[in-house]
Amino acid sequence: MTVFTKRPDRRFSTWAVITMAALAIGFAFPDSAAAGRLSTERSLSKTKHGYQIVKGHARAGKRSQRFEVRPGDCGRDPGWSDCDNNRERSEVKLKKNIRVGSEWWIGFSIYLPKDFQSSPRVKTSLGQIHQRGGPTGSAGGLPSFPPLLQMDAIGNQWQACVHVLSGSASNVRDVCAHYNLASLNQMRGRWTDVEIHIRATPGNPLLEVYVNGARKLQSNQFLRFVPKEFYVKYGIYRSFVSRHGGPMPTQVAFFDEVRMGKTRDSIAIDGRKPVD
């Protein structure tokens, strides 16, 4: 998982079994990865409406990835239950992981419909970098496996949380360092381009986030606990949904041109070679 001021166009996904009915409404349901797409897997959510490849609405090329979460859209697997932990989501995970000691750029474009609603009390993550084999703790009385980065819509803001961890690896203290990325008013009804730069090198880490070409975040406050690796998730994920005070609104977001590479140029949007 970037309107760079004036750089080329960009990025990614999983691809589709297309039925005649799906063609009629412009939808294709994901199956295997198409050429040019990064390989992904769905995370917990299995609803058909939760993840689709759609035609006719894209940052570049002809297709994009559409995510939708409705009230009560929670899933479970053998190791975790969103339903039991006050969460709802539809996300995918990139199968390509980020090893400790490596350096990567991740790019994607996100489109929020004009009627996208957020909550003033519940964070909706629209992109995350997680840790595998990292420290554990609790949050709100529930088990917590702190990620490195979350990019959350709350109120009228899209803000980044860099998880600054301290304490012990089995009972970690987790404090968010917040960075404003954009207002939701700026994002509704248009594509927003994002670039993430991560240098996962102990002793010399670096995390940067650029939105539409402007750097919005620069931090080296991570890798205090060295995990086995990092991995990227994107889509719609909302936690502690009961804080909204009623059912959360249905939320829809489109992602396109998801790329991952060793340099910033390698993730630039290129309309001549879209990730379709």
Rank of each mutant, 00 (worst) to 15 (best):
E41S: 14
S170R: 15
P147C: 02
G213M: 05
A169W: 06
V69Q: 10
R99V: 01
L44T: 12
Y179C: 01
D270R: 15
P135M: 01
Q131S: 08
H49D: 04
Q131Y: 04
A58F: 10
H197Y: 09
D9H: 11
P146G: 10
H244Q: 01
K93M: 08
S170P: 05
G155N: 03
G167C: 02
A177R: 05
T40C: 11
R272Q: 12
A139N: 11
E41T: 15
L38I: 07
I269D: 11
Y51P: 08
S242N: 06
M260C: 03
Y231L: 01
G246T: 04
A153H: 10
M1V: 12
L149Q: 02
P274Y: 04
N85T: 08
L184I: 01
S81D: 09
F230C: 01
I198P: 04
E91Q: 10
D265Y: 02
M248K: 07
A182Y: 09
R190H: 14
K96L: 12
G79K: 14
V211F: 01
G134Y: 09
A268M: 13
K114S: 14
Q186I: 02
I98E: 01
D73P: 14
W158I: 10
R132L: 10
L112Y: 14
D115F: 07
Q150L: 03
A35R: 10
I25V: 15
G26I: 09
S13Y: 14
P274V: 04
V100Q: 01
F12H: 11
K262F: 07
W15K: 07
N156Y: 05
L148D: 01
S138F: 06
I25L: 09
G75Q: 08
Q117V: 07
V122F: 04
D276E: 13
F230Q: 00
G26S: 09
D152F: 01
W104S: 02
V17Q: 09
I25M: 13
K228Q: 14
F254W: 11
E41G: 12
